[in-house]
Nucleic acid binder design. Structure first.
Length: 740
DNA sequence: TTGTGGTGT
């Protein structure tokens, strides 16, 4: 293996690094080209469709030819945890080593790698975090960016997905490579040297090649001198995939009712197309999928009726919030003996576009639509149904050709590919809240205004995020990061939640706030996915743990109870309250992580700095409990105010007089018997803006009197502007928090 | 009076 010969290990073939038919993976045929290109460049742009073997083989090729590549330690990033783990397991098997030794992985909450790990699979986020934490020491130097990684080769996989972390990695890596190239000391500093490989779908490699070939182009044409710019040497290689041909069919005209059309298409495929061959139908969301399942069942019963004795249909739904067992049921192939008679028809969201592969699929039906989160601030967002991109359309169609030739039926005319669809989805960085991304960049020693983005975020978005970070005390008035900001950047939560957490450390309620922060950060609602017919029962059950202080405290009550239970009892508790055990378990992991981070120097320093810088002038009574006994939630509320003061709103209008029967000094626990239909209170954001309505799912609606002043986690735009996850606060705390 | 496309530290 140390011979330097270009070729592949015997063990790879022995352990199946080839196709089911015994042919080698396409990428292995090109190993020599890859090694040649890698040796001669700074950045290698490698294009290859799914199935060419690039994720498993490229790191091995670089490592096994180390005499020419110089690679003895390689990191490879994946967009999803599951991908990082399963690819690492595959490669460990091929190399006949135990996972976590020579081949390992690291995702959030789980690290299976060690000092001897030569091939390390990580998520994009882990690598970014690694670059941050190892960079603290180098922050002294203003000459160089602090992006520092201890690898010979850094491979960013699935780079075409363009999630936020990918874009940050691309910019940081490019800047670092250019700096090193322009720096005379670079050659002696072996620790700092690495080469970059970005791997992508074939469609868009030109954009990546252009980006890395061009000199640094800071966001707003700043005057910053970025070192003598010797351009990077960028090589480009295309590896053919091994997918089977897919015949793509389109409608003549645009389809109005695409859910109906999808159901009809599925029924028709079932009637006309040969067996075996399952159908995968892409719709935008859970509602549509549930409707389509019911419609198809109805349709098949009515039209196929008695004729259907031989060829049965299994209708499946697939979306990410579905319980893992149900997902598994949709993915599992039919037993071989019934595949000639039965057909599976799966209605899915775009979870089946990239994250989940379903064996047995030969026919794809594509509605051409998906849901996308719209809005560039943390406070305001809505999910809208929008047309997919051409790249997504190709990806969806490709799902029909994984095992044999297939057919893709598009529910839109071919011309819509160009008249309606964008070429690619807009990169996440152009449409998401930037506060956390900017914290990361600042922590890496980079001012966001000088960052070389492949696609720049909007100037307004940058401005909003900067203002927020200054308000939160993470940046000073000159936009320099301070200890508070460094601590916030080290916390795996959003900027506002992070600030509240530091506040709580100072106030002595960090443990409760760690729970709260975990709950505010987990994806999805803990009250997820209850079918309409069970919603009344769910609402009733959930009210047992509810607090009149609002949803944030109610959910915290649930979480505290959950954590206090023996792990064996937790499942039943979740079922009784119609709560997602998966979400609470994720919150538990995040909670434990926060408790650990609380001990670290960076975070402790941040909390201490908060005390010195922000609270110097504050009266000592601020933190003391009010007279009349302890009210343990009050400190927590006050700390939340410090993070979420931008999300404060005050009551605009008194409720109808019939609602005023409650005690004027109402405290937690006092609910009305039932919510009133006339309970239509409106709030106004303290910084102005449109009228806000409390989301009907809020426990606030069960109160006799609405609170005068509230905080909310987010605004949801549907039929109205609804605030979700609401907490009652005292307006006096706002003055404390904002220092006015 | 109502709603959860998909990722990630």
């Amino acid at each position: 293996m140390g011979s330097g010969a270009v070729g592949h290990r015997e063990s790879a073939a022995a352990n199946g690094a080839g196709t089911p038919t015994g042919q080698p993976l396409p990428i292995l045929v090109h190993a020599r080209d890859i090694v040649d290109a890698y040796a001669a460049c700074d950045v290698l742009v490698l294009a290859g469709e799914t199935g060419c073997g690039k994720s498993t083989q490229l790191p091995q090729i670089l490592l096994d030819n180390r005499r020419r590549t110089g690679v003895s330690r390689v990191v490879i990033t994946q967009p999803r945890r599951l991908a990082a783990i399963s690819v690492a397991a595959r490669v460990a098997h091929e190399r006949e080593c135990e996972l976590g030794t020579q081949v390992g992985y690291a995702v959030r909450f789980e690290n299976k790698s060690g000092p001897g790990t030569q091939i390390r699979y990580v998520t994009h986020g882990v690598l970014l975090r690694e670059a941050c934490s190892s960079s603290t020491a180098s922050l002294r130097s203003q000459e160089h960016s602090a992006f520092h990684l201890n690898y010979d080769a850094v491979i960013i996989d699935e780079v075409h997905e363009r999630d936020l972390n990918t874009d940050l990695l691309l910019g940081m890596a490019k800047t670092k490579l250019l700096e090193r190239k322009g720096s005379a000391v670079a050659k002696s500093d072996a620790e700092e040297s690495f080469k970059l490989v970005v791997m992508s779908a074939t469609a868009d490699i030109a954009a990546f090649t252009d980006f890395f070939s061009a000199p640094c182009r800071p966001l707003n044409g700043s005057q910053r001198q970025v070192h003598p710019q010797t351009p990077l040497v960028v090589k480009q290689l295309i590896i053919p995939g091994r997918a089977f041909p897919v015949e793509r069919l389109f409608t003549e005209e645009p389809v109005q009712e695409y859910v109906n059309a999808a159901v009809t298409a599925c029924a028709q495929i079932h009637a006309d197309e040969p067996f075996p061959g399952d159908v995968l139908c892409f719709l935008s969301g859970q509602d549509e999928i549930d409707a389509a399942c019911a419609l198809l069942k109805d349709h098949l019963e009515r039209y196929l009726g008695k004729k259907r004795t031989k060829h049965e249909v299994l209708i499946m739904a697939l979306y990410a919030t579905l319980a893992p067992e149900e997902q598994q049921r949709a993915i599992e192939p039919l037993p071989v003996e019934v595949r000639a008679q039965r057909r599976k028809i799966i209605f899915s969201t775009n979870v089946a576009e990239t994250s989940i592969t379903i064996p047995g699929v030969r026919y794809v039906v594509d509605s051409g639509m998906c849901k996308m989160r719209v809005g560039t601030s943390a406070s305001q967002s809505s999910l809208q149904i929008v047309p997919i991109s051409r790249a997504q359309a190709a990806q969806r169609a490709g799902r029909a050709g994984r095992e044999c030739a297939g057919k893709a039926f598009s529910l839109y005319p071919e011309r819509a590919l160009f008249s309606v669809m964008p070429e690619f989805e807009p990169p996440e960085i152009t449409r998401c809240d930037l506060a956390s991304a900017m914290l990361t960049l600042f922590a890496l020693g980079t001012d966001v205004r000088h960052f070389d983005f492949m696609d720049a975020p909007s100037a307004q978005g940058v401005q909003n995020a900067l203002e927020l970070l200054v308000d939160l005390g993470a940046l000073d008035e000159h936009c320099e990061m301070n200890a508070v900001g460094r601590a916030m950047a080290a916390l795996p939560v959003g900027a506002m939640v992070g600030r509240a957490f530091l506040e709580a450390m100072r106030a002595g309620c960090a443990q409760s706030m760690a729970m709260m922060a975990a709950l505010l950060s987990v994806e999805g609602n803990i009250y997820a996915s209850v079918r309409p017919e069970r919603r009344a029962a769910a609402d009733k059950a959930r009210r047992h743990e509810a607090s009149a202080l609002g949803d944030m405290i109610s959910v915290l009550n649930v979480f505290e109870k959950y954590l206090s239970l023996h792990p064996r009892e937790r499942g039943a508790y979740c079922r009784d309250l119609f709560i997602s055990a998966r979400t609470l378990n994720a919150a538990r992991a995040a909670y434990e992580q926060l408790l650990k981070l609380q001990q670290t120097r960076t975070v402790r320093q941040g909390a201490n700095a908060l005390c010195r810088d922000v609270y110097r002038a504050r009266e000592p009574s601020w933190w003391s409990e009010p007279a009349g006994g302890p009210r343990p939630r009050m400190q927590l509320q006050r700390c939340l105010v410090a993070g979420f003061s931008r999300h404060a709103a005050s009551l605009l209008e008194a409720p109808p007089s019939s609602r005023l029967s409650g005690s004027p000094n109402q405290t937690a626990g006092e609910f009305a018997v039932a919510p009133s239909s006339s309970f239509n209170v409106r709030y106004k954001g303290l910084r102005g803006g449109p009228e806000l309505f409390v989301h009907p799912s809020s426990v606030i609606h069960w109160r006799r009197r609405p609170p005068h002043c509230i905080l909310y986690q987010e605004i949801l735009i549907t039929s109205k502007l609804y605030v979700r996850n609401v907490l009652e606060i005292d307006s006096a705390w706002l003055d404390e928090a904002t220092g006015s």
